[in-house]
Write a protein that binds this DNA or RNA. Structure first.
Length: 292
DNA sequence: TAGCCGATCCCCT
DNA sequence: GGGGATCGGCTAA
């Protein structure tokens, strides 16, 4: 975790370095787990502690003290495709150092299947220091830096080198803190205010909004104190799920076409809508992911 | 609203 | 040394 005590005021920094460098430094500092130090807890309605699930309790609920609603390691111990679908509707919770809880319902995921998947970082059985989390026990986070600027957050699933990328959340709680965290890492200090829909509608946006960075790599989502998963409300039954091609992997041949991205149909919080895939779903075509 | 394109640097080959 | 599981500003329609 970061050490919040050693920050120089930004106005001092701006005198010492060019705008671009300052922007980078600012971004990196705020990407580092701030433990909420720069988020005023007074501006954020404190979230109520997780409530007891009562009759909803299942084998998936961990018995960890203080978080009776959190999903335990059993939940993550399933293959990447069913896990990617099971994530939809569940609530990701991030607790900052000052106790502020940021919450978002997962609305979009992607499955990466492991060594045979040419779009996965573990393709061909590649095991490197960076992707070690992909090979660790189900529920382990794999957080990596992309394009030198952004982080992406994966959760390892059953199967060596298989994982699920979290792509979009519907923000439920701590929106102003999320906005501030997103604001501080965007270009230009005078950027316009972000709409709610822009807070978590992308894999790196949600990492910014939840202050998830490399320090979360290889943490266990089933046991970590600062980030966990809770079962979402099941009031309206199973959401309609769209299976579409994954995003940003155009170079991987046939694997780029496989419908391994899943999102809640009609959700305005999704990062990329695939109208063709939705038409296929409406027409009742059997989704190809059932082959996996 | 969609499409284009530059930013930026770690990681892998 | 090259590429990338992204993002956001800008422009055209």
């Amino acid at each position: 975790m970061g050490s919040p005590g050693s920050r120089a005021p930004l106005d001092q920094l701006s005198r010492r370095m060019g705008q671009k460098k300052q922007r980078l430094l600012t971004a990196k500092r705020h990407q580092a787990p701030p433990d909420g130090a720069q988020i005023s807890s007074s501006m954020e309605p404190r979230m109520a502690p997780p409530t007891t699930p009562g009759p909803q309790r299942s084998i998936y609920f961990s018995s960890l003290k203080g978080h009776p609603a959190r999903l335990g390691s059993e939940f993550f111990d399933q293959p990447a495709v069913p896990l990617a679908r099971a994530f939809l509707g569940q609530v990701l919770v991030r607790r900052l150092g000052d106790g502020t809880e940021l919450r978002g319902r997962i609305v979009e995921t992607e499955a990466y299947l492991g060594p045979e998947d040419q779009a996965a970082h573990s393709r061909g059985g590649r095991r490197t220091p960076r992707n070690r989390g992909m090979f660790m026990r189900p529920g382990t986070l794999y957080v990596y830096l992309i394009y030198g600027m952004y982080f992406c957050m994966n959760v390892s699933s059953r199967g060596d080198g298989a994982c699920v990328l979290l792509r979009a959340l519907e923000p439920l709680g701590g929106l102003e803190a999320m906005r501030q965290l997103r604001h501080t890492v965007r270009k230009g200090a005078a950027s316009r205010a972000l709409k709610d829909r822009e807070l978590c509608s992308g894999p790196s946006k949600l990492c910014q909004a939840l202050a998830i960075d490399k320090s979360f790599d290889q943490r266990d989502l089933a046991t970590d104190e600062a980030v966990w998963l809770e079962r979402g409300p099941s009031g309206s039954g199973e959401p309609a799920v769209v299976a579409a091609a994954r995003v940003g992997i155009g170079h991987t041949g046939e694997w780029a076409q496989k419908p391994l991205r899943f999102y809640i149909q009609g959700s305005p919080w999704v990062s990329v809508v695939d109208r063709a895939a939705e038409r296929d779903a409406q027409a009742g075509h059997r989704p190809a992911y059932e082959d996996f």
